[in-house]
Design a binder for these strands. Sequence first.
DNA 1: CATGTAAGTTAACAGCGTTAAGAAAAGGAG
DNA 2: CTCCTTTTCTTAACGCTGTTAACTTACATG
Lengths: 219, 219
Amino acid sequence: MGTKERREREREELRTKILDAARELFASEGYEAVTMRKIAERIEYSPTAIYLHFKDKEAVLREICDADFGALAHGFSAIARIPDPRERLMATGNAYAEFGLSHPNHYRLMFMTPHPPLSPEDSAIERGNPEQDAYAFLRGTLAEALAGGRLRPGLDDLDLLTQTVWAAVHGVVSLEIAKGNDGWVDWRPAAERVRLMIDFITRCLWREDADGGSRGAER
Amino acid sequence: MGTKERREREREELRTKILDAARELFASEGYEAVTMRKIAERIEYSPTAIYLHFKDKEAVLREICDADFGALAHGFSAIARIPDPRERLMATGNAYAEFGLSHPNHYRLMFMTPHPPLSPEDSAIERGNPEQDAYAFLRGTLAEALAGGRLRPGLDDLDLLTQTVWAAVHGVVSLEIAKGNDGWVDWRPAAERVRLMIDFITRCLWREDADGGSRGAER
DNA sequence: CATGTAAGTTAACAGCGTTAAGAAAAGGAG
DNA sequence: CTCCTTTTCTTAACGCTGTTAACTTACATG
């Protein structure tokens, strides 16, 4: 009687095969190159077969996004063990930037293109869980610093802080992705821009100017 | 004998008519909604007429971009008269953010989408001229502050500073455009995020913490 | 008037996302 | 094994896209 289970499993297999093909195509050739017909060719099915598993193309890409959001947050797990919130914040920023700079096509889809996200019940991510939700992870680190009284006075709106810190690093990454190859500007290396930005933000947030001391003044 | 001039003028008129139609369409309905056929319908010509003036759709959009870059820089002209570099920097950031937030579709095309820009000889913008090139304008303000010895020690790479300041404000604006309506995050008002970011950046750059005094601590 | 050139149109092509209709495969019931 | 039902998958098609080729019209100049 296990036939039903087998069917379900096969269904799921094809579903993930579609997602994998789409992700790969998308990562290597960019958003515009992802067509239903190309995905279909890669998995050796007809284009319409995809519609048995996804409502439309948007749904495929949103699901890729959703999975990558989870992967990003999960990538922070090693960082989560850093005890000092300030060090943890800096490491988070660096890891985030590295993710974006090494997966520009994914980053573009995830953070630079407006899509309505998956509805919460369809998402694989548990909102607010720092192990799955990168925003929650960052917010948690800042909450800890705030609760410990280590931030500058007046900085008390936790969401505002989280969003601003995020925006700062996102600014460097997204500008690099969108304009890094344009030749109009004499770009400094992206890694340096990331470092300076994280340094700026950390210094702006924290009360004391020098911490444990491993990282000195930039430059 | 003025027929040649008249022809040339008519040609130019249609050209700008195309650009105006495309810009309007694009601002109100977004990048994806701009089709050659819709532009053509608006100007009451056949779609192929556009190709007599522009190589392809990209070329139309790149030219819109180019003009808007100029307009952005030109919009800074009032700000250019602010004598204090610090005040001027803050005003520039605010104006930039306001531009992006009130013209999200233009902003998206200009700063969030990778295109090779127009070749310098085709561009209407004179690179490096602060009245036309917004990057040069920002860089000039920072150069003045740097030359006046008012920035913190160690901050001496002018392009790195310019790019990082730009990235900071761009981060807020672009995140708002891409993710501001997504519901996953409890967004604070965009204006507040802009204000805090500009405050952060200014404080990080400048030596002294309080200036002439008009703007006190945030919040 | 004839001629050459520029401007503009119509028709078409290849590709896109997506849908409708039908074929094929597979499982269950008699 | 046969008949029927349900699920899976494909073929064909629709309306849209950017773009090109071929043709027609308008017009200044010899």
